[in-house]
Simulated assay, not measured.
Amino acid sequence: MLGAYTDSSGTMRGFLNTGAMPLDLGSFGGDTIPNALNDGGMVVGTSTNRAGQERAFSYGNGSMRDLGTLGGTYSSGYGVNHRGDIVGSASTANPAEQDLERAFLMSGGVMRNIGTLPNAT
Rank of each mutant, 00 (worst) to 15 (best):
P118V: 09
L67H: 02
L117P: 04
N113M: 10
G52L: 05
P22Q: 04
M12G: 09
T116P: 08
T48F: 13
L16K: 08
R112K: 15
G84W: 01
T32L: 08
Y59V: 03
F15L: 06
M64D: 08
E97K: 05
A36E: 04
T48D: 09
N94C: 09
V80D: 00
F28I: 01
L67Q: 01
A120M: 11
H82N: 10
T48G: 04
S63V: 10
P118D: 07
S58P: 08
S107M: 09
G84C: 09
M21I: 07
G41K: 08
M21K: 07
T69N: 12
G115N: 06
A36F: 10
A36L: 06
G41F: 12
G77K: 01
R112P: 04
G84S: 08
G3T: 11
A20E: 07
E97C: 10
G79D: 12
N94A: 12
A90I: 01
I86M: 03
T11S: 11
A93G: 14
A36S: 15
T73Y: 11
L70R: 01
N35P: 13
G29W: 02
E101G: 14
G10I: 06
A93L: 13
P22K: 11
G84N: 02
S58H: 11
N94L: 15
S8Y: 06
D31H: 15
R65H: 12
Y5V: 11
T46Q: 12
N49R: 10
A96E: 12
S63P: 08
G88H: 00
P22R: 04
L105H: 05
A103Y: 05
D85P: 02
A36C: 13
P22E: 05
L23Y: 14
G45P: 05
H82C: 08
R65F: 13
S91C: 08
R65G: 06
M64G: 03
P118L: 05
N49Q: 07
R83W: 15
G30A: 08
G68Q: 13
V110H: 01
M21G: 05
N35W: 15
N35K: 15
T116S: 11
S76M: 10
G108V: 01
G26L: 00
L16A: 13
F15E: 06
A96F: 09
D66V: 05
M106R: 03
G29Y: 03
L37P: 12
T116I: 15
A51W: 07
M42F: 09
P34W: 02
T116M: 14
M64T: 03
G45A: 14
Q53M: 12
D24R: 07
P95S: 06
P118F: 04
G30E: 00
G30H: 03
